[in-house]
């Protein structure tokens, strides 16, 4: 039986119109148009039943409403996968595709596939919610991009194993899985072969690609006596019963604990759950991880203008980029709500 695919297109590719129609609100078309027809023709395991159409401008300026509306349009429909794009180098379209894929994936628990150029800002928004095929820079690449989307959609619909990013042509989603090579390809052989290439100035390919860390603009210096200060930590200190079940490594959540009325953190009331070091020191003296007594003293001396009453804490070891960024954004929301402009950040 053919599986059902729904595809998302912007106003331009959906045939609604150009930039003048960018504020077009989401609508649902039964059947196919333009790229969704092309996709439908290529698929062997599925058929495109509906096409969602939405203007890029509307999605950008009314994201939440647009997504909610799309959710309502899809409610009650049967479908197995969402396709979106391809978006090429179009930033607004790429971001729209990523937003819709993420939303539909989470709301309807189905896989989502899109396609865009590597520098499209939509690429890094929700890497684990979808497969983003590495696509062309401009619309002239449609003929190259569409077969890539069709190929992976067919594989997903047939329940075939999805191989690693390079083999399938999608951008890495932040997962690493182990595979077995032929037995004779030992790490010793691979290591020495790579070293010889590097010594000879020949091209070589690392097996663990590491992105260069992008730097953020340096925030201005602040006089703490005139600032609003908070303490955030990845040292793993939590209340003794660990009420939020902060894990010892690879954390996906943080705890937020009230320090109001406290001048010290006492042994027996707090403990460290950090799995990366010997926890006995922090268990005996929690202020080796969160120096509240020192902070209170500085506050009393007027050297800290205002101290935020909540302490934010998680474990930092082996927490991946996606979760770190998300947790930090959530913490920033709390901090901004209290006009915090200065943070002391403790870690191992």
């Amino acid at each position: 039986m053919m599986k059902k695919v729904i595809m998302y297109l912007n106003q331009f590719y959906g045939g609604i119109g150009g930039e003048d129609k960018a504020d077009y609100e989401p609508s649902l078309l039964e059947g196919v148009v333009g790229p969704s027809k092309a996709l439908d023709d290529m698929l062997t395991a599925g058929t495109v039943t509906y096409t969602i159409l939405c203007g890029d401008g509307y999605m950008a300026s009314h994201t939440e409403e647009a997504l909610e509306k799309i959710g309502r349009l899809l409610e009650g429909l049967e479908f197995d996968i969402l396709a979106a794009g391809p978006a090429f180098m179009s930033g607004r379209y790429g971001v729209s595709c990523a937003e819709v894929c993420n939303y539909v994936h989470k709301r309807f628990k189905i896989p989502a596939v899109t396609c865009m150029f590597e520098e499209n800002p939509g690429r890094e928004m929700y890497p684990q919610s979808m497969y983003i095929m590495a696509g062309s820079k401009s619309g002239a690449g449609m003929r190259k991009d569409m077969p890539k989307m069709a190929a992976i959609i067919d594989k997903i619909l047939k329940g075939e194993e999805i191989l690693w990013a390079e083999a399938e042509g999608y951008f890495p989603r932040g997962f690493r899985w182990q595979i077995q090579l032929p037995k004779e390809q030992t790490a010793a052989k691979r290591t020495v072969a790579m070293l010889k290439k590097k010594l000879d100035g020949e091209p070589f390919e690392t097996e663990l690609p590491i992105d260069a860390e992008e730097m953020v603009p340096i925030a201005p210096p602040r006089d703490a006596s005139k600032s609003r200060v908070a303490f955030v930590s990845t040292g793993g200190l939590v209340p003794i019963d660990n009420p939020d079940h902060i894990p010892s490594a690879a954390s996906t959540r943080f705890g937020r604990y009230d320090l109001s009325g406290k001048d010290v953190l006492k042994s027996g009331e707090w403990k460290s759950v950090h799995g990366g070091y010997d926890q006995t020191y922090a268990n005996e003296q929690p202020m080796l991880a969160m120096p509240l007594d020192a902070i209170r003293k500085l506050e009393a001396e007027g050297k800290i203008g205002y101290f935020h009453p909540w302490f934010y804490t998680t474990t930092g070891n082996q927490t991946n980029r996606v979760n770190s960024v998300r947790m930090a954004k959530e913490i920033v929301e709390y901090l901004k709500a209290d006009d915090i402009d200065t943070v002391i950040f403790g870690s191992a």
Binding site: Q128, G174, F175, R176, W177, Q178, A187, R190, T191, M194, L195, K198, F204, T206, E207, L208, I210, D211, A212, E213, A249, A250, G276, N317, Q318, T319, N320, R321, V322, N323
Partner: peptide, 24 residues
């Protein structure tokens, strides 16, 4: 590497792009 049971943990405690040749 230590990507964890879900495959989504950061592979190593520290990563630095200056280590441009690694065998896993």
């Amino acid at each position: 590497e230590s990507p964890g049971h879900g495959g989504g943990m950061q592979s190593k405690v520290m990563l630095d792009a200056r280590a441009d040749a690694i065998v896993s």
